[in-house]
Design a protein around this nucleic acid. Structure first.
Lengths: 191, 191
DNA sequence: CGAATTTCTTAAGGTACCTTAATTTTTTTT
DNA sequence: AAAAAAAATTAAGGTACCTTAAGAAATTCG
């Protein structure tokens, strides 16, 4: 059964009784999505937090000039949403799209609140999830401030080898904050 | 009593019984620090999470060339540490220093673990703390990727007016990822 | 208070990365 | 398998931001 994946993800950090497990399952919805499907559109209410079972998603921000900046990639076993807007009921700032055919599980904000209230154990799970997300972003800020584009690219290759296989260079460039043209010159063997 | 501050901070998100309150108080230590005191040194074990009661602290990363990047500022009512290293028992990557005479409360990693275990309510508190920290960092990444230095500076002035009063331009520049010289040209009225 | 230190400013020359545009390669769609 | 679309490469010219350096202003400290 495909639910296995998401349950294993949760049981990495907390253990659940059968009752809690089935309650959790009752709060999530599975979705099968084709490539290039828009999971969240900027300006809309961000109602869902998504867990990626298979495939790959990308969240990105489009600025006033139409330039896209990739905020994050989410491949199998990652969670993704526009967290600020999901939690604070603000219109989404980001878009989220599938990069390939994907299967995801979603939990609505309402069900998320209910889950935390009825099974406080999930506070711990999400505390750890947020903690990991926070430290990951902080490290990214640190690297962005202190390294050159070339160093950041090399570091990305080492840190996310699986993502590298699933996304285009154009998307990696927009995650690193450089143009695809410049990334191309970085990749070019020197001499 | 000076404890009031930190308790009010916690009670914004969870309510505590008297017993829980005194248990929490027993786990924290107050420290009074003069200006330019080193609260954490890169390479050392990051044993404490600090709450700033009064004053101002700054965490920063020093790269191989000696260039400093400010990771965050913490003024009154903020929490600060090298979170990744605190949680994962890794040697600190960052330094943390006071920018003025400050009073802080610290909780050691051991006591932090004990607190979460004995008073699970704190899972919720730290879930929210991490959640806010995560969304703040993600927004910063988004801005860093999509805005010019001038836009980021203006946004900083609006977002953190109190911090602006307590830190130097050199420190703001290193938070924005630019040189103080360039920040100076940005500030100069244009004709 | 005065001396020392640090911060801020200004300016000239330099570089990492961008823009535009054209070509090639790869992927997607029919 | 052909046609269309998207991604990747290459290159020339441009700009945002950096480096170095020196003087002015502000802050710290004896």
């Amino acid at each position: 059964m495909i639910n296995e994946e998401i349950l294993r993800n949760i049981k990495k950090h907390i253990s659940l009784t059968e009752k809690e497990t089935s309650f959790f399952i009752s709060l999530i919805t599975a979705k099968s999505l084709s490539k290039k499907a828009l999971v969240l559109e900027a300006g809309q209410d961000c109602r869902y937090l998504s867990y990626v079972a298979t495939g790959a998603l990308r969240s990105y921000y489009t600025d006033k000039d139409g330039k896209e900046s990739t905020i994050m990639f989410a491949i199998a076993d990652w969670w993704i949403t526009d967290m600020y807007c999901y939690l604070n009921k603000k219109p989404a700032m980001m878009n989220i799209e599938t990069l390939e055919q994907s299967t995801i599980f979603q939990i609505s904000r309402t069900n998320f609140d209910e889950l935390l209230e009825k099974v406080p154990k999930f506070e711990k799970f999400f505390r750890i999830l947020m903690q990991n997300a926070y430290t990951r972003e902080q490290l990214r800020v640190m690297e962005n401030l202190s390294s050159t584009a070339e160093e950041r690219y090399q570091s990305f290759l080492i840190k996310y080898p699986q993502i590298v296989k699933q996304v285009t260079q154009k998307q990696i460039a927009s995650y690193l904050g450089i143009t695809p043209e410049f990334l191309s010159t970085l990749r070019k063997p020197k001499v």
